[in-house]
């Protein structure tokens, strides 16, 4: 390496470090806060915990609720389960419904195709909050208020169109030749779809799943509107309760935020090997 190349290398790494520090600084503050024993956080340049303690973490995860038979049950565990269940179901429904729809939109011509696409697009233009009231009324009529099923239905109404757009784009980039080759090789249209199109689209499907999961996992307004019973809460609603109007429990909030991010990080870790870019490259020409 020449001196010039070394200098370039050092410079680019220095720049990267600055960028990383910039992005991580608030996160470090949350970590410091979560483990601080002081009751009032003080402004410091370097975010390190003062009087380090695990108390806040323990306090956040060990909430309980009374059960009808007079005992107590682990409340936080149930809320975590609510969040995971609702988010995974939303992502599964979104991706599951979207795959066949997106494939049809990408590959076939049919009556109502452009109209359908326009309608889907229109549903994407309104923020979820705008429909909070009608959703509330509809869920009430169906007796699904304050249930996880009701929340999943509401979330799916945005995750499905979103996933359709994502996956349609992905299917369109897969050359038709691949399916045709599979069909000449002896596959039915369906087999060609399952054994060639789906595996090639796997990275796009993984990304779509992750996005749908995260959107549901982070959603607050609808959850706060539609859920009233503590044992039905999802984690964003739980977190919000720590920063009430008068007595913000910042340390508990920070500790809760840390716990809440663990599943998302785990999911990223699990899915990353399926999201390898360029998996589809090299099949045709080159």
């Amino acid at each position: 390496m020449t001196a010039r190349a070394i200098a370039n290398n050092v410079l680019s790494h220095a720049l990267l470090l600055v960028a990383v520090a910039f992005a991580l600084y608030p996160v470090l503050w949350v970590v410091a806060l979560a483990f601080s024993g002081d009751s009032v956080p003080t402004a410091r340049a370097i975010p390190v915990p003062t009087a380090p303690t695990m108390d806040h973490l323990r306090e956040v995860v060990s909430t309980t609720r009374p059960t009808p038979d007079g005992g107590t049950a682990w409340l936080f565990g149930r809320q975590l389960a609510n969040s995971l269940l609702v988010s995974i179901a939303t992502a599964l429904v979104g991706v599951g419904v979207a795959i066949p729809v997106a494939y049809a939109l990408a590959r076939f011509e049919f009556v109502g195709k452009s109209g359908g696409m326009a309608t889907l697009l229109a549903t994407q233009m309104f923020p979820a909050v705008a429909s909070a009231v009608p959703l509330f009324i509809m869920l009430e009529a169906m007796g699904l208020l304050n249930t996880r099923t009701g929340l999943i239905l509401c979330y799916a109404s945005t995750s499905v169109p979103f996933a359709i757009f994502q996956l349609r784009g992905a299917f369109e980039t897969i050359p038709v030749d691949l399916e045709e080759a599979a069909m000449v090789d002896g596959a039915s249209r369906f087999e060609a779809f399952v054994r060639v199109v789906l595996p090639v689209a796997k990275p796009a499907i993984a990304v779509t799943f992750l996005f749908a999961f995260m959107t549901a996992y982070n959603e607050f307004i609808l959850a706060a509107t539609l859920l009233s019973d503590e044992s039905m809460f999802t984690l964003p609603v739980v977190l919000q309760r720590f920063i009430g109007e008068y007595d913000a429990q910042w340390e508990a909030f920070a500790a809760g935020a840390l716990v809440v991010s663990v599943p998302v990080m785990a999911l990223f870790y699990l899915l990353q090997k399926h999201m390898v870019a360029g998996l589809g490259a090299g099949g045709v020409k080159g």
Partner: peptide, 20 residues
């Protein structure tokens, strides 16, 4: 007949190799 029932082999201009 559907393609799979014709027992023909085809070499595509783009080769159409299965990338996965």
């Amino acid at each position: 007949y559907a393609p799979k029932d014709r027992d023909v082999a085809m070499v595509f201009q783009s080769y159409a190799l299965y990338p996965h």
